[in-house]
Nucleic acid binder design. Structure first.
Lengths: 195, 195
DNA sequence: CTTTGATCTGAACGCGCGTTCAGATAACAA
DNA sequence: TTGTTATCTGAACGCGCGTTCAGATCAAAG
């Protein structure tokens, strides 16, 4: 029989997070039990509590980690260019992120309501910070006349919703390549803001 | 003490559906118990089973009813006009629907994964039929040259996602009136398809 | 080789779940 | 006024939930 006990922290830890992310995305936080996660990882349910104080913290940690990664990745992008170039950059960045980590993006939009108020506020702030990035681009483009957006706030919501929607249908093995999808969406986004 | 038993079928029935819709939308299907729904209605949990064979059927019935209503309402709309006029009609119709029955729209997109496969297929078909309406509009406009959409399928998904996104932020008491929102979105949709 | 400490098992805890059903109640028909 | 029937109550069912913890196991340090 294979080794079942001892030190596996650095292996089991990520496995727990991976399994939880996958299951939460597929079935929803409330519909997934700690025992299901444990089974996926290959341990008993009790062992999960070496890696999270409770189920709620596990969800929060996944969402927080994802938002931090997303914001950090965006910060790391080069910042050159005018509003139009920045908008293209954001469009492609968001689609690539959506396609690279679909489960994380998915639960970030679906499982917010399962967060306790305190945790919800934290994630909501981070999401606001991310959306602000797009809003600033649209706002600056509107000021210079590069864009025709009467209401940058609404335009931000519209563009984000459109881009995040890619999550619902994109498959790696699908008809279109990632860069084709990027191109089509960028074309629509650009035109929608009159750029 | 108020009357607690007897014949109330025509009162209790809608109350059950209303309570379930509201609670499912707020907390998610899996996170809501039959006892919570019953409490909202003002009966014991067992009484709910006079109105639904089980919890799953309650969810399915809400989703099915909503999709049927949505499709019927769209069918009832006048069909005159060219592709551009039809697209404006669809845009305004979808936003109005989204704003009028936000809970139903919400669970139609969020709770699909909680449907058993058989039920899922039914709702997915209805949703497909609805999205086809938009796709046909875009396709016909693309053929006549009224629109510039290289991929009508993708454009359909993009537009639907953008419009449904209104659900996430629109509030009746908000900064913008419904017709203002409609106007802003119609402007963006029209430009995005090159119309 | 021994000790230590991180890791995991397996059993248990109280609780709320979806669902069922016999019996109570009240509206209505006769 | 009485009988019928739709409706609801209240208790119960087996089950799986999140979580805890004593004890077993094993890698690594001394």
């Amino acid at each position: 029989m294979a080794r079942t006990q001892g030190s596996h922290s650095d292996i089991t830890g990520p496995k727990v997070r991976d399994a939880a992310l996958r299951l939460f995305a597929r079935h929803g936080y409330a519909a997934v039990s700690m025992r299901q996660i444990a089974k996926e990882v290959g341990v008993q349910a009790g062992a999960l509590y070496n890696y999270t104080p409770d189920k709620q913290s596990l969800l929060f940690s996944l969402l927080k980690g994802h938002m931090d990664d997303l914001l950090a990745a965006w910060e790391a992008e080069p910042k050159a260019g005018d509003a139009l170039a920045r908008l293209e950059q954001f469009t492609r960045f968001h689609i690539r992120s959506t396609v690279k980590t679909p489960e994380a993006i998915f639960i970030s939009y679906m499982e917010l309501r399962n967060l306790e108020p305190e945790n919800f506020a934290v994630i909501e702030d981070l999401r606001g910070a991310y959306e602000d990035q797009l809003e600033q681009i649209l706002r600056s483009g509107a000021e210079t006349g590069a864009f025709d957006v009467p209401d940058p706030k609404i335009a931000t919501m519209a563009v984000i919703a459109m881009l995040t929607g890619v999550n619902t249908w994109y498959r790696h093995e699908g008809r279109l390549s990632l860069s084709e999808v990027e191109g089509i969406y960028w074309d629509m986004v650009r035109k929608s803001v009159g750029g």
